[in-house]
Design a binder for these strands. Structure first.
Lengths: 184, 184
DNA sequence: CCAAGAGGTATACACCTGTAGACTTAGCTT
DNA sequence: AAGCTAAGTCTACAGGTGTATACCTCTTGG
């Protein structure tokens, strides 16, 4: 049994859940699995978060609230996004990115709705704030789409072509794409 | 009981499976569900396809073999892809696209591997063939990534920004992106 | 000192999962 | 008409799902 510390236990469950949901996706993870890896019984999860869905909602909120590593300078934004993206999706990179959480959980409609809300409230908003307030309203959304797609093909699917391609080439091409999308 | 026609029954199962896997993804669909909607017992699925995984493999093969509607003219390729993509992801469009099959099933690693093979053997290859044989080897893979990402955000997640944006704007921006990626 | 309540566990339910093995029946062939 | 085989079904298993109810036990406050 865990030492009786509600706050710490909650945090432990939240961490286990983030790891599990990101690794396998909402549907493929059971609450028992999450609970066990937090050193706790399954029922405690429901006591603290109401339900599996409630737990997921908190995980998403926590994952998206963390500031993304981006410049505040619109001029280097495209290059910055491209560089971070290529590095984070590299075959040897640690696999704990909010995008993976999203892509692996999105097939479940309830999870998808939670994710949509989180993205628009945090990620998309953050991107919009950095950009000069112009009339390019769909720019950030399209940038996110490209990022998501790159994650899908490079890590979920494991495209051999994207694995073989040099990182420099990918960075260059993606930078051009982001530049096009972020241009007013 | 179905009339005893092995070929027709096989086809019926295959069609039901394509529909179900595309609508809900590999993990969220049970063989009983597929069998029932084909007017058949669950065990017949395994008799014909060996296992759920075997069935999925045949579904993917069939779905990807169908020729994609693309010009053979490299000059209008970018515009063509953009137009088809925006139309097929429209909120009122019928939802039976191989990309949905892929995105909803990719979280399962075994399914992902099957999908990767299918994509590289059919879709990616088709795209490569249309392009002028240049040294832009990662072009087609990146185009697929953008398409996949757009599908994710517009239909799986349901981004309100991408729903609000006019189709013409989306088409224009995507065309520019594809042009960048397909350029040598 | 001991009772109250918070933190955590145990048991159970109703249902679904993929698939193995034994069984039945329809339809063609002789 | 009979019989054989392909086509299809039935039953069952071993395990997993989320979660509701009831229970236990440690810690703290009076």
């Amino acid at each position: 049994m865990r030492p009786r510390n509600a706050a710490a236990t909650r945090e432990a469950i939240l961490n286990s859940a983030l790891e599990a949901f990101t690794r396998a996706g909402y549907d493929a993870v059971g609450v028992r699995e999450i609970a066990e890896s937090a050193g706790v019984t399954a029922m405690l999860v429901n006591r603290y978060f109401g339900s599996k869905e409630g737990l997921f909602a908190e995980v998403v909120e926590a994952a998206m609230k963390e500031r993304t590593v981006l410049t505040d300078d619109p001029a280097t934004l495209a290059a910055d996004i491209a560089a971070v993206l290529v590095r984070r999706t590299a075959p040897d990179a640690g696999r704990l990115d909010p995008f993976l959480l999203m892509l692996r959980s999105a097939p479940n409609p309830r999870a998808a709705e939670i994710l949509r809300a989180g993205i628009e409230r945090h990620v998309e908003k953050h991107l919009t704030d950095v950009l000069p307030a112009g009339k390019n309203a769909e720019g950030p959304a399209l940038v996110l789409a490209v990022i998501a797609g790159f994650w899908v093909m490079r890590t979920l699917i494991g495209s051999t072509e994207l694995a073989r391609a040099g990182e420099a080439v990918l960075r260059t091409k993606l930078e051009k794409v982001f530049a096009v999308l972020l241009a007013e």
